[in-house]
């Protein structure tokens, strides 16, 4: 078995009286795609918000490369090598496609702020390398984006936006990538393309661990190696897709949620 790169141990997150995540544990290995699934409002996105540092967990710990990282600010966690995408894509709309990816490389820079202002020659060289790399990543996912690096991100269609968001996250060669419902609002064709993209990520970044939060069972079935199912913040099942999908608790949780929409 490959090495564990990121794990959550007895993670709990409370908002006032509401328990959004209740004592959840999981481990992500290198080269693995871990699916975290569950009905709407199960607390999936909250897990990502905790891992990426936007929230500090109430109890439990998140371990990354044998360091406890809960409580660290988001930018430090990103710098350590954990990157994410967002359910409703959060691109920098008024700057270009290329600039979006270059921001994604913020953690790569060896130079400090002062350097970036005054060490012009070295910075110019670094910029040149970064541009080359950005175009490479863009080309991998969407030749259209690579050909239009100066297009405003806000002018892209939703499919391209999602791809650009993945490129931005991958630009700094992260060790862990968190994908938050990338198939949300997509038709079957688009999600088929997305599944390919997700599998592609492992080609360009060997050893990366991916956590995929998803509502769309087809996407999970096709991509995830291992699945954890949560409902109302609690884990209710784990295993391969075949195992969890035959679990009566999982079926109940999913069917029971069809009618509610909160």
């Amino acid at each position: 078995m490959a090495e564990i790169c990121l794990s959550a141990n007895n993670l709990t997150m409370k908002f006032g009286g509401l328990v959004a995540i209740d004592n959840v544990s999981w481990a992500l290995h290198q080269n693995e795609i871990l699916g975290i699934i569950g009905p709407n409002g199960a607390g999936k996105t909250t897990i990502f918000n905790v891992v990426s540092g936007l929230y500090t967990p109430t109890s439990g710990e998140i371990v990354f490369k044998s360091n406890i990282i809960n409580g660290l600010p988001p930018y430090k966690i990103a710098k350590m090598g954990i990157k994410r995408t967002f359910q409703q894509s959060r691109l920098f709309d008024n700057i270009s496609v290329l600039d979006n990816v270059l921001v994604g490389m913020a953690t790569l820079s060896k130079g400090t702020l002062v350097n970036s202002l005054f060490r012009r020659k070295r910075m110019a060289k670094e910029l040149d390398e970064n541009i080359q790399k950005s175009l490479g990543i863009l080309n991998h996912f969407s030749p259209f984006l690579a050909e239009n690096p100066y297009r405003k991100a806000g002018d892209l269609v939703p499919g391209e936006r999602r791809k650009l968001e993945i490129c931005r996250a991958l630009a700094s060669d992260p060790d862990v990538l968190l994908l938050d419902e990338p198939a949300a609002g997509m038709d079957p064709n688009e999600s088929a393309e997305l599944m390919e993209d997700i599998l592609k990520i492992r080609d360009i970044r060997k050893g990366i661990g991916i956590i995929l939060i998803e509502h769309d069972m087809a996407v999970v079935q096709k991509t995830a190696d291992y699945i954890v199912v949560i409902s109302y913040g609690k884990e209710i099942a784990r295993g391969s897709f075949a195992e969890v999908s035959s679990n009566p608790l999982v079926q109940e949780a999913y069917l029971g949620s069809e009618n509610e929409n909160a």
Partner: peptide, 8 residues
Amino acid sequence: GEKIFEKV
């Protein structure tokens, strides 16, 4: 107020 959690 309780602690604000920003919607993400």
